[in-house]
Nucleic acid binder design. Structure first.
Lengths: 227, 227, 227, 227
DNA sequence: TATGAATGAGGTTTCATTCAT
DNA sequence: TATGAATGAAACCTCATTCAT
């Protein structure tokens, strides 16, 4: 069965067909359970052609990961301008993220679920992309901390004013990790829950995170002793 | 080569050996890449015995998931008493969660990474456990909302007092999803980052989440128009 | 069709069946053209069993080479006693060699034809066995040279007597190489020519070689200028 | 990667390029392990062109064998004149043989090693060439026998003179087989041993063979009872 | 209870070969 | 003349699973 087998397309076209099929199947079944037979069939080509163009199952998987990671990164980057205030950057970034993952659910599954599961070449590859995201978010958090601190610094300097130290970088990374983790989880949830839009998911997360971060930066840290 | 093969142990003991081996290997290699041969060898028994006791690879994987899910649930439940305030419940629950995942990294990997990537029987099983967690956390959030609302309600009732409506359940679920997602992510991060203790991970997450939730419940919701 | 598939034999038996089949097919078709499918079928077992016991096609081929090389070496060694005179040792060795190669033609083909053809692991293996043979024959030639020289030395010592220098080792190796090459070639010829017995082949080669060697050692070397 | 692909060469040139590449690869890897892909690449042409000119892998291999066999035969034949004495013919022929095999090692490998190991079409082809060589050498041996016998016959006819019967043809063939086998073996040995020249190899073999043959023809046959 | 012996089915990969231009 | 695009067939190898003891 499979797709109709059209003939004699240029290489680039066929390669995209293959990657599309592969992302779908890797997303649905996982790396090992997706067979090259099935991928070739869904791409509408014969198996040898897949090997001719993409070399091996591992290489094919790697190509999928790279394509999807690049697409996601681009989608987010294109919406985030460095001259926006940090808060706005975060909001736009999250919206782009949830929008993209909603439009490419299999791609997102491959990146989020499957790539980690396989051995070192792939785990490392997605880990690198993810680390970039984390670092970016950590920078935003630090920038936001400065943004909030500035008005205070410009304040009256009266006796009640507490100096707000810059958030330690190490702490910012932990927070970024939490935020990104929450985002990843919400993306899967939004994809699986009908009626939840990307906009809503982004708003939920901003609600959850932003105000909390604000409090935190103003020195009102939560402490176990309070509980 | 393989564990020492001692003889004639009672069934329960043998079964635990097998599950231990299986959890290790499923965690390290994934469901498909872990072979029954290797599992049997690492368990120190012959392959037919594995089949005699656990029926099939699928059943074995299911048994692993159930055992690990139960253990994790138990670990958390045993630390959370319903008569604690919601905030304390959340704190203790998170601490238990991070402690357990740190002590059973392969089990956590099986639940978090591997179970999702296989077909329906397992994804559903682990999703069910996760849904319980989410529901529990959502309840805590709603309870906390009430806790915070109560003092206000008991307040002076002066003109400035705004009535805080109960957080809508749907919203609470989204927040719980985000919190649990953040927790899962932090668990993996803490396991992979030397020097991060379960205590610290829990505190980071409380810091991140709790204050924000508080703000949110007091009506200071974040809104995109502000950005 | 293949052999009748009898059941539940002990491992050692099955392994010999497999090696028998493999030697036959490797001999007839060559390493690459012989398929594991066909080997398994001819051995009367399923393919996975071949892999279970012999690991891989390469290992199987290696096992064949080692078995056949050992058998040939043993056959020759068992007939050659170091206390025989060199001439007798050579004769008995050649007879044993031609007898064995006549009785195990496929084994001989594997050693002589196929093993060289494949990459390094095997070429080296047979080259090692062959080098042992060459060295052994070279020793015999040198010993024979001494045997022949001795009576002369015990001669009258008159003015006509020329001292015969020990044959240089390097030369002996070249001669041994030629002799062994001739033997190898004659073995194939004898196998392919009906009516030529091992005894005759051995006698032909002794005729060809021994007298010539004798002349050579007595100083009557052939020289191009004579031609 | 691969040879530079120049354009529009006449067919004969292209064919030689292909045969050159094929002989190299068949010699290095063997018939089955050499792929048409690699041959085409090394020849600097596309694969369909190889098929256009040479039809199939089998035909290509056959063409290689024929080309190399013809070249070797020509090289030897051009140095051997029927009016030379048999001894001289043998010496010149051997020298030409060792010289040619040293200059065309892959071609020699294809003829000596690879052609035999494949199925019937090729083994027969190279066997035919070899049979011609053997027959030629057998004739030389018989001729030499007559050369040697003649002077004796013309001798004094004194009482000690034994009549030397013409060497039986069957015997001559066996001896020729041995000689050619030795030559083949020495060719491989000389190719693999640095510092051994074609001249030396030829001399070694003449030394080994000629004197022995002489003895043999003079009736001093070796006999097992002597050993 | 426990295991050595055995296999059907299916995986990835490669190859010789052809079509359409 | 020459080639990029494409594939049927078959190779090696592994796995989950069962049988007979």
């Amino acid at each position: 069965m499979g797709a109709v087998r059209t003939k004699r397309k240029p290489r680039a076209v066929r390669e995209q067909q293959m990657l599309d099929a592969a992302v779908q199947l890797f997303g649905q079944r996982g790396y090992m359970a997706a067979s090259m037979d099935e991928i070739a069939e869904r791409a509408g080509v014969s198996k040898p052609l897949v090997y001719l163009y993409l070399n091996s199952k591992e290489d094919l998987f790697g190509a999928c990961i790279r394509r999807e990671a690049t697409a996601l990164t681009e989608a987010v980057r294109s919406k985030v301008r460095p001259d926006m205030p940090a808060e706005r950057q975060l909001w736009e970034g999250l919206r782009a993220f949830f929008t993209h993952t909603a439009q490419h659910p299999e791609g997102w599954t491959v990146l989020h679920r499957q790539a980690h599961t396989q051995g070192e070449p792939f785990a490392a590859e997605v880990a690198a992309v993810r680390a970039e995201f984390i670092a970016f978010v950590a920078q935003l958090i630090l920038a936001a901390a400065r943004d909030r601190a500035a008005p205070c610094a410009r304040g009256d300097g009266g006796p009640g004013e507490r100096h707000v130290p810059a958030l330690p970088e190490h702490e910012a990374t932990g927070l970024a990790e939490a935020l990104v983790g929450a985002a990843e989880s919400l993306a899967a949830w939004a994809n699986a829950t009908p009626g939840v839009t990307a906009h809503q998911a982004a708003a939920t997360l901003m609600n959850f995170a932003w105000a909390g971060l604000g409090n935190l930066m103003e020195g009102r840290a939560w402490s176990p002793s309070a509980a």
